[in-house]
């Protein structure tokens, strides 16, 4: 039972994340009066890529060979450490050695820095083939990410101050809803900051266009331009995982309704699942709506957006620190 629960929590994010991508694409297609591919298309893409042989640049080193595995593994680990349906850290009793717990990974500073690590590794992959595009993609990604890290850190820090804990699982189960309504308002401000970072970190509008392969504009796609086959599949899958994790963090940290706090498959879990699904759908709709309604920003307007996200979180923290702590 324990091991089943553990395994479910570990594979939940990689299992669901392509579906989220499919849903967003479907929403976008519908809004553009297209039929679009069905929501399972990302799964077929992944299967196709995994079955293909691959071409690796002869300039490439072990960076290209091994880092995709590393990045994918880190996103899976993070996926297991954030609250989805349940706010209990996955734990596995390993015989006499003790408990293999993922609770430490749920520390919000660890999450921020592990995401930074995936970005760092991805940027190095982009520069590894010595191509004209990869380097520019890396440079842009670094610009966006270096500035987004402060925003992400402070958005999570705002929740951390409100709930008096650094662990994202405990943030959800801390009974935030016992706070007075006024105390929840700053959280909404912090959420706006978080949502901007979500868009930035996941190469979404207005930061990047996930659908284009036009070299001049792209950020994320430029870095993985020279990958193919299973390595490309891993990178695409890791990107999907990352989006799923950000959506889960946004949905559960800032709106912690209906997250199960018990082990097993009791009524609470059964009730938590559709609630979580609904929240994720709302996020998917929001992203799709945004991408249909607005254009991508010019590169040098992006820092303004990122600083705005940071300032929003600082305001939220300022209210908490000034009024409550």
């Amino acid at each position: 039972m324990d091991i089943l629960f553990f395994a479910l929590q570990v594979i939940a994010v990689p299992a669901v994340s392509p579906l989220l991508i499919g849903i967003i694409r479907k929403f976008k297609a519908l809004m553009q009066n297209r039929v679009g591919a069905d929501v399972w298309q990302p799964y077929r893409d992944l299967r196709k890529l995994f079955q293909k042989d691959e071409i690796i640049s002869d300039e490439a080193s072990w960076v290209t060979r091994y880092f995709p595995y590393l990045i994918f593994a880190i996103t899976v680990l993070l996926g297991a450490a954030v609250p989805l349906v349940s706010s209990l850290s996955p734990e596995l009793v390993v015989g006499e050695w003790g408990v293999f717990s993922l609770a430490p990974v749920s520390d919000f500073i660890i999450i921020v820095y592990l995401f930074a690590l995936t970005t760092f590794l991805l940027v190095l992959i982009g520069m590894d083939q010595g191509s004209a595009f990869g380097g520019f993609g890396s440079s842009r990604e670094m610009m966006v990410s270096a500035l987004a890290e402060g925003g992400l850190f402070f958005a999570l820090f705002a929740v951390s101050i409100a709930t008096q804990t650094g662990n994202v699982m405990e943030m959800v189960s801390s009974g935030m809803y016992e706070l007075p309504l006024l105390a929840l308002l700053p959280l909404l401000i912090a959420f706006m900051g978080f949502f901007l970072v979500l868009l930035a970190e996941n190469a979404r509008f207005p930061f990047d266009n996930p659908a284009t392969h036009l070299e001049l504009t792209m950020i994320h796609e430029a870095m993985i331009l020279d990958l193919s086959g299973k390595r490309l599949a891993l990178m695409e899958w890791a990107a999907a995982n990352k989006l799923m994790i950000f959506v889960a963090l946004g949905a559960n940290l800032f709106f912690p309704i209906g997250v199960s706090t018990t082990v097993g498959f009791g009524w609470e879990s059964v009730y938590a699942l559709p609630v979580f699904g609904a929240k994720v759908l709302v996020f998917a709709l929001m992203i799709a709506l945004l991408e249909s309604l607005m254009a991508k920003f010019r590169l040098f307007r992006l820092p303004d957006v990122l600083f705005t996200s940071f300032i929003l979180s600082v305001i939220a923290i300022g209210i908490y620190v000034g009024a409550y702590v």
């Binding site: 921020v112 520069m127 590894d128 010595g130 670094m142 990410s145 270096a146 402060g150 402070f154």
Partner: peptide, 23 residues
């Protein structure tokens, strides 16, 4: 400190990438 972390990452991506990777 949080911005320092992000910028240090950018700086060392540059230091390692430009020095050791590519052609």
């Amino acid at each position: 400190l949080s911005f320092t972390g992000g910028l240090a990452m950018a700086c060392f991506a540059k230091a390692f990438g430009i020095t050791f990777l590519g052609r």
